[in-house]
Computed example of a mutant assay.
Amino acid sequence: MAEPAYLDTAQGRRLAYHLSDGTGPTVVFLGGLKSDMEGTKAVHLEAWCAAQGRAFLRFDYSGHGLSSGAFEDGGIGEWAEDTSAALAELTRGKLIVVGSSMGGWQALLFARAHPDRVAGLVTIAAAPDFTEDGYAASFTDAQWAALERDGQVEMPSDYMEPYIITRHLIEDGRKQLVLRAPLPLPFPVRCLQGTADTAVSTETAVRLLNHADSPDIRLLLVKDADHRFSDGPCLGLIEAAITEILDAST
């Protein structure tokens, strides 16, 4: 396995990444919360793009994978800074941004801030505003008390070890919400969502579909697909979504 390269950001963080040269638009993969760039979808898309001679970027946010920092020190805003730094320093021209789960929120934040860079978006079980609508909305009085007392609370996950949710993650998340104000996405958007996803609901996917302002936005619900969305048929659907955007942008 090739060793990653590293990018030092203006915020003093060191991000691990893999960048493949090729034609544009560059495909960028943004992973989920506590995921890293060695996940099935990221590695598969890298190989798929390489076979087409297309440029591709995957990287680890700070506190994730091989990048610097501790997960508990980060938040949606810091990871958005990481995304902006990686895409500004490592890519040129138009991008197709593929965001999985929390990476879907990151993709929307980047697209809102830099619409001129985006040829299209693909979201996979996108989780915009999850810190507010998921965690904060479901906290018990005891969990709120622990958050105030300890600065963090442990939350179970169906897909990995429990998450440590910090008060900073919740408070910073409130500054990054994308479903409370207009969300112009002036390019093709493809949203993919499994109906057996226990981390992100189909209602969230429909809410994003209805809220975003795009000339060409579509939601595909896949019966019985779970949050990982990484078996063979699901990977094929991601490829097809990217191909649709490539066709629309030529």
Results as ranks from 00 to 15, higher is better:
A5D: 15
L7Q: 08
T9F: 00
A10E: 15
G12H: 11
R13T: 14
R13H: 15
L15G: 13
L15A: 10
H18P: 12
H18A: 12
L19C: 01
S20E: 15
G22T: 10
T26V: 07
F29C: 03
F29S: 07
G31Y: 02
L33S: 05
K34L: 14
K41F: 01
V43N: 08
V43A: 13
H44Y: 15
L45D: 03
E46L: 11
A50E: 15
Q52S: 11
G53N: 12
A55Q: 06
L57W: 10
R58F: 06
G63V: 00
G63K: 03
S67A: 11
G69A: 09
F71D: 04
D73P: 13
G74Y: 05
G75K: 03
G75E: 08
I76Y: 11
E78H: 12
A80K: 06
A80H: 14
E81L: 13
A85V: 09
A86Y: 05
A86T: 10
A88F: 01
K94R: 14
I96W: 03
V98Q: 06
G99R: 05
S100T: 08
S100M: 07
S100F: 05
S100A: 14
S101A: 02
G103Q: 08
G103V: 10
Q106W: 04
A107H: 03
A111K: 06
R117K: 12
R117S: 05
G120Y: 00
T123C: 10
I124P: 00
P128I: 12
P128S: 12
F130I: 11
F130R: 06
T131P: 07
E132I: 14
E132W: 03
G134M: 08
Y135A: 09
A142P: 02
Q143A: 09
Q143I: 12
W144N: 08
W144F: 10
A145Q: 13
L147Q: 00
R149V: 04
Q152E: 15
Q152A: 15
P156D: 01
S157V: 11
P162A: 05
Y163G: 00
I165Y: 01
I165W: 03
H168G: 14
H168E: 13
L169Y: 07
I170S: 05
E171M: 10
K175I: 12
V178P: 02
L183A: 08
L185Q: 02
P186E: 01
P188K: 02
C191F: 03
Q193P: 01
Q193R: 05
G194A: 11
G194F: 11
T195Y: 09
T195C: 07
T195I: 10
V200F: 13
S201H: 12
N210D: 13
N210C: 06
A212C: 14
A212D: 07
P215L: 09
I217F: 01
I217L: 11
R218W: 08
L219I: 00
L219W: 10
L219Q: 02
L220P: 00
L220D: 13
L220Y: 09
K223L: 07
D224L: 05
D226W: 04
G232H: 14
C234A: 15
G236M: 06
L237E: 04
I238Y: 09
A241Y: 00
I242F: 00
A248I: 01
T250E: 14
